[in-house]
Simulated scan of single mutants.
Amino acid sequence: MANPRITPDMAIWGWQIATYLFLGGFAAGLMVFSGWAILSGRDEQTPFAVNRAPMVALAGLAVGMTALFFDLERKINVWRFYATLRVTSPMSWGSWVLILVFPALALLALAGLPKGFPPLARWLEGLPFVGPRIIAPVFRLCFDWRRPLAALNVALGIALGIYTGILLSGFNARPFWHSALLGPLFLISGLSTGAAMIVLAASDPRERHLFGRIDLGLILIEFTLVGLFLIDMLNGDALHQAAVAHVLDGNMSALFWIGFMGLGLGVPAVLEAAMWRRSMAPIAIAAAALVLGGGFLLREIVVTTGQQTSWTQFHNQFDPALLQRLRSDGMDADGRF
């Protein structure tokens, strides 16, 4: 491990990974809420969630996957993710979840396209030959099957949302990521950003009020999970305590306490609590925008902080001089080896 080629530098993930994790969680939240709204028969109360959210989620996930593709060192080898399934690799499982998410989400988006985006639907249905013979029947078929598609999207949305956290927690060599709480934390954060997007884009006051209340509950759960995560780190060994110090009072503390905890969670919680009985559009939009910003900051903080500490940065973990002595003994014909 004293050889730099054996212990590589892992501080290589930048904005692309944080963007992918954020948009993946965001899309997961929209998938869950769109499916829930359809299954619960809330078509009139939640028109954006039912008819438009799947298309917005599909676009967001496509942008996130593009950012992930830009991060790949050897982009031509991306197909290798789907050449096998490694049951012990969270990244392998995530790759296969994503390949299931896209068609399920696309079919649900097609089911809501005629009502959600009427001009686009009319244009597609009016295309020569394919419009009336292929596209229009596909719209009707997807709408007829939208309840099973909604249930599938809820299940895959939960899997996608929790995977974004499990992806990082699987890196045992990074103390800040090595926590089982990252999966639930990223799932709840993704649901919160999905609810915030619906609040931001909904034109119906009833829908805005409903998802503002839902988001408030999710923020309170997120506060709890963040607290448990910090307690978990502080009760760990010296490596975990040194890792969490970066966000408690180190170089990431201002971004964590002011940006994420304050502006990303605290202020929106206060604003949404004030609108518990009646939603006010300007305040609801401001709260939703802060939640979206906080969701991205959470991923940026976790990705960056996780790369600032590792198991090999502590001298008591390994003594390079010991390896040299062992090598010398091994090369000595009269040595112990």
Rank of each mutant, 00 (worst) to 15 (best):
M233C: 02
L113E: 06
S203I: 06
T164V: 12
P184H: 04
F33S: 02
P114K: 00
L156E: 07
R5M: 12
R213P: 03
A286D: 10
A111R: 05
I134T: 10
G165D: 00
A57C: 04
A321R: 11
L200E: 09
L230R: 13
F22W: 10
Q45N: 06
F143Q: 06
T224I: 13
D319Q: 09
M91K: 11
V247R: 01
E73M: 11
E44D: 12
H178N: 15
M261Y: 02
A287T: 13
M1C: 09
G41Y: 14
I76V: 10
I135E: 00
T19E: 01
F69S: 02
V63E: 04
V226T: 15
D43E: 15
L182K: 04
G236D: 02
A11S: 13
L239Q: 13
V78A: 14
L182Q: 05
R325K: 14
L160D: 03
L182N: 06
R74Y: 14
Q16M: 13
E222F: 04
F176K: 00
W79Y: 11
P90N: 03
P4Q: 06
L160K: 05
G264S: 06
N251L: 13
I231W: 06
I301F: 09
V138R: 05
S92F: 09
L216W: 06
F143Y: 11
F48E: 01
G94A: 03
A180G: 12
R80H: 13
L100Y: 00
E222V: 03
L72P: 01
A106F: 15
A27N: 13
P54A: 07
E300K: 11
G194L: 10
A242S: 09
R80P: 11
G112Y: 01
I188H: 01
Y163R: 01
M197H: 06
T224L: 15
M1P: 01
I6K: 08
A155T: 07
F211S: 01
S279H: 10
A269W: 00
F318T: 12
Q307I: 05
A151V: 07
L167S: 03
V97T: 08
R147L: 07
L228Q: 04
A136F: 11
W257Q: 07
A288C: 11
L113Q: 02
G116V: 11
F22N: 02
A136E: 08
F176H: 01
G126N: 12
D232C: 01
V130N: 00
Y20S: 07
A238D: 07
A121K: 00
L141K: 05
E73Q: 14
P148H: 06
A2T: 14
M331F: 14
G157K: 05
R74D: 06
W36T: 15
